[in-house]
Amino acid sequence: MIQLLFLIIISAVVLSIAFFGFRDVPLTRRMILAGGALAAATIGVLMQSSFSWYMSLLAIVAVSLLAALIYIKVLEKEQKEIERDEEERKARRKEMISTASSLHPAPEPTPIKNEVADQATNVRETIQVTEKISMPEPVKMPQMEKEPERVKELVGAKPFGMQSIKSVGKEDQGEQ
């Protein structure tokens, strides 16, 4: 009886971990894994009292193998669905391309006359004045002749040292 109680407690923990812990795995696969593990444990507990230990161990292995085969079959089915969907998309895409090309034949290329380029060469030939390229003059920054007053105040000040720190401790407590 205590064994069944432990089995129920462990099954609740396993199902909650499988359901909430592995969110990225689809629900069917999660339940196959958790259900297979719980079925193997249940059969092991039930067979433990009436059969020898190795028979219950063989039953656990057999149920686990059965759950693994079911899991693999589900994976194969999902993979086949994905491949079938990809093939259908490719077929639709090829059909759309073929219908689009039959409805709208490609136009024959025509030579393009470049009138803008011809005008630009004519304009270049007519300009006879040479252009002067001048460099911009460097920008002169005004010099600061006066130092800020605050800097002058700090020049004559004494450096900060340990002398300015007053100790806090026994001396202050005695004065109070």
Rank of each mutant, 00 (worst) to 15 (best):
E171S: 11
N122C: 11
E147A: 10
I17P: 06
L7G: 02
I17V: 12
S16H: 05
K113H: 06
T130V: 15
V139E: 01
Q3T: 10
P111L: 14
K77D: 00
G21M: 01
K170Q: 13
T130C: 10
R150E: 09
S11H: 04
M1N: 10
S64F: 02
E145Y: 13
Q176E: 06
I165N: 08
I10Y: 02
S101V: 07
L154A: 07
I8V: 12
M96V: 10
D118C: 00
K146Y: 05
T42L: 06
V155H: 11
I60M: 04
A12R: 14
A41Y: 02
V61S: 06
P148Q: 04
S164H: 13
T28V: 07
V155Q: 12
L103A: 07
G174S: 15
L27I: 02
L7R: 04
L7D: 00
K170E: 13
P138D: 02
A157T: 14
E88N: 11
A117Q: 04
F19I: 12
E149I: 00
A18P: 05
S134Q: 12
Y54M: 09
A34N: 09
H104R: 15
E175P: 08
M141Q: 13
K140D: 05
S52V: 06
L154F: 07
E115T: 12
Q176H: 11
L65T: 05
R23Q: 12
G169Y: 01
H104V: 15
K166G: 11
Q176V: 13
I112F: 09
V13S: 06
G35Y: 03
P107M: 11
E83Y: 07
S134D: 09
I133T: 14
E175H: 10
V168S: 10
I60Y: 03
P26K: 05
R124G: 10
E131G: 00
W53H: 11
A67C: 01
Q163N: 15
D85G: 11
R92T: 01
R23T: 06
I10R: 01
M162G: 10
R29M: 12
E108H: 08
L27A: 11
D85T: 13
I2T: 09
S101N: 07
E153A: 06
W53A: 14
P26M: 08
A68F: 13
Q176A: 13
L4N: 01
M1P: 01
A59D: 00
D118S: 01
T121S: 13
L65P: 03
V13F: 10
I2F: 11
N122I: 15
I72N: 02
